[in-house]
Amino acid sequence: MLTQKDLLGLEELTADEIKLILDTAGAMREVMTREIKKVPTLRGRVVVNLFYEPSTRTRASFELAAKYLSADTVNISAGSSSVVKGEGLLDTARTVSALGADVVVLRHRAAGAAAFLSRYVHAAVINAGDGMHEHPTQALLDLYTIRECKGKVQGLTVTFVGDILHSRVARSNIWGLSKLGAAVRVCGPATLLPPGLDRLGVQVFTSVDEAVAGADVIYVLRLQRERFVQGLLPGEEEYARLYGINEKRLARASDDAIVMHPGPLNRGVEIAAEVADGSRSVITEQVANGVAVRMACLYLLARREADDKLYH
Protein backbone atom coordinates (compact mmCIF):
# COMPACT_ATOMS: atom_id res chain seq x y z
CA MET A 1 0.00 0.00 0.00
CA LEU A 2 1.05 3.54 -0.67
CA THR A 3 0.76 5.67 2.43
CA GLN A 4 -0.06 8.94 0.69
CA LYS A 5 -3.02 10.12 -1.33
CA ASP A 6 -0.82 11.50 -4.09
CA LEU A 7 2.34 10.78 -6.02
CA LEU A 8 4.14 14.10 -5.87
CA GLY A 9 7.74 12.98 -5.90
CA LEU A 10 10.14 10.21 -5.02
CA GLU A 11 11.41 12.29 -2.09
CA GLU A 12 8.19 11.36 -0.27
CA LEU A 13 8.27 7.61 -1.06
CA THR A 14 9.98 4.89 0.95
CA ALA A 15 12.14 2.21 -0.69
CA ASP A 16 9.37 -0.31 -0.06
CA GLU A 17 6.78 1.86 -1.76
CA ILE A 18 9.05 2.28 -4.78
CA LYS A 19 9.56 -1.49 -4.95
CA LEU A 20 5.82 -2.04 -4.68
CA ILE A 21 5.25 0.22 -7.68
CA LEU A 22 7.98 -1.53 -9.68
CA ASP A 23 6.60 -4.98 -8.82
CA THR A 24 3.10 -3.89 -9.76
CA ALA A 25 4.47 -2.51 -13.03
CA GLY A 26 5.85 -5.98 -13.77
CA ALA A 27 2.33 -7.38 -13.65
CA MET A 28 1.09 -4.56 -15.85
CA ARG A 29 3.81 -5.23 -18.38
CA GLU A 30 2.29 -8.67 -18.80
CA VAL A 31 -1.11 -7.13 -19.58
CA MET A 32 0.53 -5.14 -22.35
CA THR A 33 1.75 -8.29 -24.06
CA ARG A 34 -1.77 -9.68 -24.39
CA GLU A 35 -3.63 -9.55 -27.63
CA ILE A 36 -6.39 -7.53 -26.03
CA LYS A 37 -4.53 -5.02 -23.93
CA LYS A 38 -7.31 -4.18 -21.54
CA VAL A 39 -8.30 -5.11 -18.02
CA PRO A 40 -11.41 -3.83 -16.23
CA THR A 41 -9.54 -2.77 -13.10
CA LEU A 42 -10.40 0.95 -13.21
CA ARG A 43 -13.73 0.73 -14.98
CA GLY A 44 -15.95 3.64 -13.99
CA ARG A 45 -13.00 5.70 -12.76
CA VAL A 46 -12.11 9.06 -14.24
CA VAL A 47 -8.53 10.09 -14.92
CA VAL A 48 -7.95 13.69 -15.92
CA ASN A 49 -4.74 14.59 -17.70
CA LEU A 50 -4.11 18.26 -16.96
CA PHE A 51 -1.15 19.41 -19.05
CA TYR A 52 0.00 23.00 -18.76
CA GLU A 53 3.20 22.29 -20.66
CA PRO A 54 3.48 20.72 -24.08
CA SER A 55 4.14 16.99 -23.85
CA THR A 56 3.63 14.21 -26.33
CA ARG A 57 5.29 11.25 -24.71
CA THR A 58 4.23 11.57 -21.12
CA ARG A 59 0.67 12.47 -22.00
CA ALA A 60 0.25 9.65 -24.48
CA SER A 61 1.80 7.27 -21.98
CA PHE A 62 -0.62 8.25 -19.20
CA GLU A 63 -3.58 8.16 -21.55
CA LEU A 64 -2.74 4.69 -22.78
CA ALA A 65 -2.09 3.50 -19.25
CA ALA A 66 -5.52 4.71 -18.14
CA LYS A 67 -7.19 3.16 -21.16
CA TYR A 68 -5.54 -0.23 -20.69
CA LEU A 69 -7.04 -0.17 -17.20
CA SER A 70 -10.48 0.77 -18.61
CA ALA A 71 -10.64 4.17 -16.91
CA ASP A 72 -12.37 7.07 -18.61
CA THR A 73 -9.92 9.78 -19.53
CA VAL A 74 -10.21 13.48 -20.16
CA ASN A 75 -7.35 15.52 -21.54
CA ILE A 76 -7.08 19.19 -20.73
CA SER A 77 -4.09 21.00 -22.10
CA ALA A 78 -2.91 24.56 -22.42
CA GLY A 79 -4.16 25.95 -25.69
CA SER A 80 -7.37 23.95 -25.77
CA SER A 81 -9.22 25.16 -22.73
CA SER A 82 -9.90 27.84 -20.19
CA VAL A 83 -6.23 27.58 -19.29
CA VAL A 84 -5.75 30.06 -22.12
CA LYS A 85 -8.48 32.32 -20.78
CA GLY A 86 -6.29 32.96 -17.78
CA GLU A 87 -8.10 30.67 -15.40
CA GLY A 88 -5.71 29.89 -12.57
CA LEU A 89 -4.59 26.42 -11.62
CA LEU A 90 -6.71 26.62 -8.47
CA ASP A 91 -9.95 27.26 -10.34
CA THR A 92 -9.21 24.62 -12.95
CA ALA A 93 -8.47 22.17 -10.17
CA ARG A 94 -11.76 22.89 -8.43
CA THR A 95 -13.60 22.41 -11.71
CA VAL A 96 -11.86 19.12 -12.35
CA SER A 97 -12.63 18.00 -8.85
CA ALA A 98 -16.28 18.94 -9.19
CA LEU A 99 -16.45 16.91 -12.38
CA GLY A 100 -15.68 13.87 -10.29
CA ALA A 101 -12.09 13.05 -11.21
CA ASP A 102 -10.57 10.17 -9.26
CA VAL A 103 -7.04 10.84 -10.40
CA VAL A 104 -5.56 14.06 -11.74
CA VAL A 105 -2.31 13.85 -13.69
CA LEU A 106 -0.66 17.26 -13.68
CA ARG A 107 2.17 18.61 -15.80
CA HIS A 108 3.01 22.22 -14.94
CA ARG A 109 5.92 24.59 -15.42
CA ALA A 110 5.94 25.71 -11.77
CA ALA A 111 7.77 23.65 -9.15
CA GLY A 112 5.36 22.69 -6.39
CA ALA A 113 2.29 22.92 -8.65
CA ALA A 114 1.28 19.31 -7.98
CA ALA A 115 1.69 19.77 -4.22
CA PHE A 116 -0.39 22.93 -4.44
CA LEU A 117 -3.12 21.17 -6.40
CA SER A 118 -3.20 18.21 -4.02
CA ARG A 119 -4.18 20.46 -1.14
CA TYR A 120 -7.35 21.55 -2.91
CA VAL A 121 -8.72 18.39 -4.54
CA HIS A 122 -9.98 15.15 -3.12
CA ALA A 123 -8.70 13.24 -6.15
CA ALA A 124 -5.29 11.59 -6.11
CA VAL A 125 -2.74 13.82 -7.83
CA ILE A 126 0.07 12.37 -9.91
CA ASN A 127 2.88 14.75 -10.64
CA ALA A 128 3.77 14.38 -14.31
CA GLY A 129 6.51 16.98 -14.04
CA ASP A 130 6.51 20.24 -12.04
CA GLY A 131 9.08 22.74 -13.22
CA MET A 132 12.58 21.74 -12.19
CA HIS A 133 11.32 19.85 -9.14
CA GLU A 134 10.31 16.24 -9.82
CA HIS A 135 9.03 13.89 -12.48
CA PRO A 136 8.41 10.78 -10.37
CA THR A 137 6.85 8.49 -12.99
CA GLN A 138 9.81 9.08 -15.32
CA ALA A 139 12.22 8.06 -12.55
CA LEU A 140 10.08 5.05 -11.71
CA LEU A 141 10.14 3.87 -15.31
CA ASP A 142 13.89 4.43 -15.34
CA LEU A 143 14.28 2.37 -12.17
CA TYR A 144 12.10 -0.31 -13.67
CA THR A 145 14.21 -0.36 -16.83
CA ILE A 146 17.46 -0.51 -14.87
CA ARG A 147 16.14 -3.31 -12.69
CA GLU A 148 14.94 -5.21 -15.76
CA CYS A 149 18.26 -4.87 -17.58
CA LYS A 150 20.55 -5.36 -14.62
CA GLY A 151 18.47 -7.57 -12.37
CA LYS A 152 18.96 -5.16 -9.48
CA VAL A 153 19.47 -1.52 -8.58
CA GLN A 154 21.42 -1.84 -5.35
CA GLY A 155 25.15 -1.50 -5.77
CA LEU A 156 25.03 -0.08 -9.28
CA THR A 157 26.75 3.13 -10.31
CA VAL A 158 24.52 5.46 -12.33
CA THR A 159 25.94 8.54 -14.03
CA PHE A 160 23.76 11.44 -15.20
CA VAL A 161 25.31 13.64 -17.84
CA GLY A 162 24.03 17.03 -18.89
CA ASP A 163 21.80 19.81 -17.63
CA ILE A 164 21.38 18.72 -14.02
CA LEU A 165 20.32 22.21 -12.90
CA HIS A 166 17.07 22.30 -14.84
CA SER A 167 16.34 18.57 -14.71
CA ARG A 168 13.37 17.25 -12.76
CA VAL A 169 14.24 13.82 -14.20
CA ALA A 170 17.63 13.92 -12.50
CA ARG A 171 16.16 15.07 -9.19
CA SER A 172 13.57 12.31 -9.06
CA ASN A 173 16.13 9.72 -10.08
CA ILE A 174 18.58 10.88 -7.43
CA TRP A 175 15.94 10.24 -4.75
CA GLY A 176 14.86 6.92 -6.21
CA LEU A 177 18.30 5.51 -6.93
CA SER A 178 19.67 6.55 -3.56
CA LYS A 179 16.75 4.95 -1.76
CA LEU A 180 17.27 1.70 -3.64
CA GLY A 181 20.98 1.66 -2.84
CA ALA A 182 22.62 2.77 -6.08
CA ALA A 183 25.56 5.17 -6.21
CA VAL A 184 24.68 8.32 -8.14
CA ARG A 185 27.09 10.52 -10.06
CA VAL A 186 26.14 13.69 -11.86
CA CYS A 187 28.22 15.41 -14.49
CA GLY A 188 27.82 18.59 -16.47
CA PRO A 189 29.28 22.02 -17.08
CA ALA A 190 29.62 24.05 -13.86
CA THR A 191 26.89 26.41 -15.09
CA LEU A 192 24.37 23.56 -15.18
CA LEU A 193 25.15 21.98 -11.80
CA PRO A 194 22.90 23.05 -8.92
CA PRO A 195 24.55 23.69 -5.55
CA GLY A 196 24.28 21.27 -2.63
CA LEU A 197 23.86 17.92 -4.39
CA ASP A 198 26.80 16.48 -2.46
CA ARG A 199 24.64 16.81 0.65
CA LEU A 200 22.41 14.11 -0.86
CA GLY A 201 25.38 11.77 -1.18
CA VAL A 202 25.72 12.41 -4.91
CA GLN A 203 29.18 12.58 -6.48
CA VAL A 204 29.53 15.68 -8.64
CA PHE A 205 31.83 15.83 -11.69
CA THR A 206 32.61 18.33 -14.41
CA SER A 207 34.83 15.87 -16.32
CA VAL A 208 32.70 13.44 -18.26
CA ASP A 209 35.54 10.95 -18.66
CA GLU A 210 35.89 10.64 -14.89
CA ALA A 211 32.15 10.50 -14.34
CA VAL A 212 31.59 7.75 -16.86
CA ALA A 213 34.51 5.57 -15.78
CA GLY A 214 33.26 2.19 -14.60
CA ALA A 215 29.60 3.24 -14.51
CA ASP A 216 26.84 0.66 -15.01
CA VAL A 217 24.31 3.12 -16.37
CA ILE A 218 24.95 6.25 -18.43
CA TYR A 219 21.90 8.46 -18.29
CA VAL A 220 22.08 11.24 -20.87
CA LEU A 221 19.87 14.27 -20.23
CA ARG A 222 18.31 16.38 -22.93
CA LEU A 223 19.91 19.76 -23.55
CA GLN A 224 17.46 22.57 -24.21
CA ARG A 225 18.61 25.05 -26.82
CA GLU A 226 17.42 27.99 -24.73
CA ARG A 227 20.40 27.41 -22.39
CA PHE A 228 22.66 29.02 -25.00
CA VAL A 229 20.72 32.29 -25.17
CA GLN A 230 20.55 32.32 -21.35
CA GLY A 231 24.32 32.60 -21.32
CA LEU A 232 24.77 29.27 -19.57
CA LEU A 233 26.71 27.63 -22.39
CA PRO A 234 28.79 28.83 -25.32
CA GLY A 235 27.14 26.64 -27.93
CA GLU A 236 26.11 23.30 -29.28
CA GLU A 237 29.44 22.19 -30.74
CA GLU A 238 31.29 23.11 -27.57
CA TYR A 239 28.77 21.10 -25.57
CA ALA A 240 29.02 18.08 -27.86
CA ARG A 241 32.81 18.28 -27.64
CA LEU A 242 32.91 18.40 -23.83
CA TYR A 243 29.86 16.39 -22.80
CA GLY A 244 28.39 14.57 -25.78
CA ILE A 245 28.22 10.80 -25.19
CA ASN A 246 29.91 8.99 -28.06
CA GLU A 247 31.37 5.50 -28.51
CA LYS A 248 34.74 6.58 -27.25
CA ARG A 249 33.40 7.90 -23.98
CA LEU A 250 31.04 4.98 -23.59
CA ALA A 251 34.02 2.65 -23.80
CA ARG A 252 35.21 3.99 -20.43
CA ALA A 253 32.05 2.71 -18.73
CA SER A 254 31.66 -0.83 -17.50
CA ASP A 255 31.55 -3.48 -20.23
CA ASP A 256 27.84 -4.13 -19.95
CA ALA A 257 26.82 -0.53 -19.30
CA ILE A 258 23.47 0.62 -20.64
CA VAL A 259 22.58 4.03 -22.06
CA MET A 260 19.37 5.83 -21.17
CA HIS A 261 17.71 9.09 -22.22
CA PRO A 262 14.30 10.54 -21.26
CA GLY A 263 13.71 11.84 -24.80
CA PRO A 264 13.25 13.61 -27.07
CA LEU A 265 16.84 13.31 -28.29
CA ASN A 266 19.13 15.88 -29.83
CA ARG A 267 21.26 13.47 -31.87
CA GLY A 268 24.75 14.75 -32.34
CA VAL A 269 24.50 17.12 -29.37
CA GLU A 270 24.16 15.34 -26.04
CA ILE A 271 24.22 11.88 -27.60
CA ALA A 272 25.86 10.55 -30.78
CA ALA A 273 23.51 8.78 -33.16
CA GLU A 274 25.54 5.57 -33.05
CA VAL A 275 25.14 5.45 -29.27
CA ALA A 276 21.45 6.30 -29.28
CA ASP A 277 20.74 3.58 -31.80
CA GLY A 278 23.46 1.19 -30.60
CA SER A 279 23.23 -2.08 -28.76
CA ARG A 280 23.74 -0.51 -25.32
CA SER A 281 20.80 1.85 -25.74
CA VAL A 282 17.59 0.99 -23.85
CA ILE A 283 15.79 4.17 -24.84
CA THR A 284 12.86 2.42 -26.56
CA GLU A 285 12.47 0.04 -23.61
CA GLN A 286 12.12 3.08 -21.37
CA VAL A 287 9.16 4.26 -23.43
CA ALA A 288 7.42 0.89 -23.33
CA ASN A 289 8.05 0.49 -19.61
CA GLY A 290 6.64 3.94 -19.05
CA VAL A 291 3.13 2.76 -19.82
CA ALA A 292 3.40 -0.18 -17.42
CA VAL A 293 4.77 1.98 -14.61
CA ARG A 294 2.00 4.54 -15.08
CA MET A 295 -0.59 1.77 -15.05
CA ALA A 296 0.88 0.66 -11.73
CA CYS A 297 0.72 4.18 -10.31
CA LEU A 298 -2.86 4.72 -11.43
CA TYR A 299 -3.88 1.34 -10.09
CA LEU A 300 -2.22 1.76 -6.69
CA LEU A 301 -3.51 5.29 -6.13
CA ALA A 302 -7.03 4.55 -7.33
CA ARG A 303 -7.15 1.40 -5.23
CA ARG A 304 -5.97 3.32 -2.23
CA GLU A 305 -8.78 5.76 -2.77
CA ALA A 306 -11.28 2.92 -3.00
CA ASP A 307 -10.00 1.55 0.32
CA ASP A 308 -10.33 5.01 1.81
CA LYS A 309 -13.95 5.18 0.79
CA LEU A 310 -14.55 1.74 2.24
CA TYR A 311 -13.15 2.49 5.64
CA HIS A 312 -14.26 6.08 6.23
Binding site: A111, D130, G131, M132, E134, R168, P194, P195, G196, L200
Partner: peptide
Protein backbone atom coordinates in the same frame (compact mmCIF):
# COMPACT_ATOMS: atom_id res chain seq x y z
CA UNK B 1 17.71 31.80 -1.90
CA UNK B 2 20.11 29.95 -4.17
CA UNK B 3 21.40 26.86 -2.43
CA UNK B 4 20.59 23.38 -1.23
CA UNK B 5 16.91 23.95 -0.49
CA UNK B 6 16.28 25.57 -3.88
CA UNK B 7 18.03 22.64 -5.52
CA UNK B 8 15.76 20.15 -3.75
CA UNK B 9 12.60 22.12 -4.40
CA UNK B 10 13.48 22.81 -8.01
CA UNK B 11 13.00 26.54 -7.52
CA UNK B 12 15.18 29.16 -9.15
CA UNK B 13 17.66 30.70 -6.78
Amino acid sequence: NEGFTATILGLRG
